[in-house]
């Protein structure tokens, strides 16, 4: 098993296991709705996760910055689109290819 990384750094097509959703530093759980929602959607320890696609980069590179990229992610039986900033909140450990 490789060392843990953020979901936003996980290469496309590589499977990983969720370790945790990182809470915002010094904030109560009730004031971190994104972390709460990520957990509700299934980003909980032990779940398998993979990145299916990243949003088209040509237009993105012209107009947007890297952290604004959008990812399509498989978690559990479900697919979600989320932004790199949200994906960066999820710690994962990649499985060997």
């Amino acid at each position: 098993m490789l060392s843990a990384m953020n979901l936003s750094m996980l290469p496309r097509g590589r499977s990983a296991i969720v370790e945790s959703v990182e809470a915002l530093p010094d904030s109560e759980p009730s004031r971190d709705p994104i972390a709460a929602r990520l957990r509700e959607l299934g980003f909980v320890p032990g779940e398998a996760v993979s990145v299916l696609a990243t949003s088209p980069s040509l237009i993105g590179r012209l107009f947007g910055r890297g952290e604004h990229a959008t990812l399509a992610v498989q978690i559990g039986f479900t697919r979600f689109a989320l932004r790199r900033a949200e994906a960066a909140r999820v710690r994962v450990s990649p499985l060997a290819a």
Binding site: S55, F63, G64, A72, R83
Partner: peptide, 16 residues
């Protein structure tokens, strides 16, 4: 489609 357009729409202040 919203996923594909999210990045460019976000760059202009909209959401996918």
């Amino acid at each position: 489609a919203a996923f594909l357009l999210d990045r460019v729409m976000l760059a202009s202040g909209l959401s996918g």
